[in-house]
Design a protein around this nucleic acid. Structure first.
Lengths: 189, 189
DNA sequence: CTACTATTAGTACCAGGTAATAATGGTAGT
DNA sequence: ACTACCATTATTACCTGGTACTAATAGTAG
């Protein structure tokens, strides 16, 4: 016996997790057992076959993270009163954080706040022109950040000031003042 | 003949592009031709088989997006003098921008600048505590943003001030002042 | 010595293909 | 009308990476 069964199985799971593209055959030579043993192991661990694993990875990609890119709003908007106030929630995932210490990168919190501020403005076009932010406490992976934004003023010159405060529980982790430019200033159509 | 060959082939390509998970069999019934015809078409169009397509989508996912999340630095670092200055370049892609007007979202520029500022600090741990930013010109899809960061002061209290200016060509599009907290302040080891 | 477990072997079968060869059907050129 | 050519279809052998099932073997504990 090369290695106890249990140990092999947990290692197997681990191996497949971080390289879903490995075949049973490769696993067999790797653990120095027969293919059948690998297959029995997979059965017991309920690990699907190679193609299913690949398919899974592929489909995940489609409706996946894109976290900071494609989504209009970073985080889940849970409340929105146009031109008044809005709230979004963002759960901090490992990819949002530094791997060394699992602390969320600053621009993640900024992105949540900024996209919320933009969404708040009910206009054709809204662009951030200025921002003044403070990161008051570090946020860790697994925590849920609730961002609350409200418009503090609609200026005559087509700009609006928006305040955003983000919380984990009742602790404030982020404060931001955003100045947003809006294109169609109500009067145009 | 149901539909001319050429027309079918371009439609085939289109179909597969937006649904790579379709089998030859499904395509055959869909276009009302035999499986062999579909395969000849794929050959001519150099479209790989289902499993290869799925695998492609899956592997793309792994080194793809991540862009704004997993990477340590958003953009490509092209110069780095630790504790002194750094430069990175980021090409604005469609997913970085609002779909309506192809203008880059503010937090994308912020992310580039912020991650550059953090990378600049040669310490175990560096965290942004404060930022003051201005978006001086809107940036469009296709433009390449060059961010230049330099340390303006290393304070006694374990904080550093970093200035970042981003350019498209010779036009300044972003100005930012970051205050970054560093953990091990030189003296420790 | 037996019971049990882990492992291995072997067979039949499946999806979704590749590769190659051949047959059919229509259409255009001369 | 006959031939040449193209598109289409059919057929067969084979491939990978499996599932599902049955059976044999080896080692260990009671």
């Amino acid at each position: 016996m090369r290695v106890p069964k249990k140990e092999r199985q947990t290692e197997l799971q681990h191996t497949i997790e971080q390289n879903p593209f490995i075949t049973d055959e490769a696993l067999a030579t790797r653990f120095n057992v027969s293919i059948q043993t690998i297959r029995l192991d997979r059965m017991e661990m309920k690990i699907p076959e190679l193609r299913e694993r690949i398919k899974h990875v592929a489909t995940e990609r489609l409706d996946d993270v894109r976290t900071l890119t494609e989504n209009e709003v970073i985080g889940d908007m849970i409340d929105l009163k146009l031109d008044t106030s809005a709230i979004s929630i963002l759960e901090i995932l490992p990819e949002h954080a530094f791997s060394r210490n699992a602390i969320a990168r600053g621009h993640i919190l900024f992105a949540q706040a900024n996209s919320l501020a933009i969404a708040l403005i009910d206009d054709e076009l809204a662009l951030t022109t200025k921002a003044n932010v403070q990161f008051t406490r570090s946020v860790h992976v697994g925590e849920r950040v609730v961002a609350k934004a409200f418009v503090s003023s609609h200026r005559q010159d087509g700009r609006s000031d928006i305040s955003v405060e983000s919380f984990v529980g009742d602790e404030c982790v982020f404060i931001g003042e955003f100045t947003v430019y809006r294109s169609s200033k109500e009067e145009s159509r």
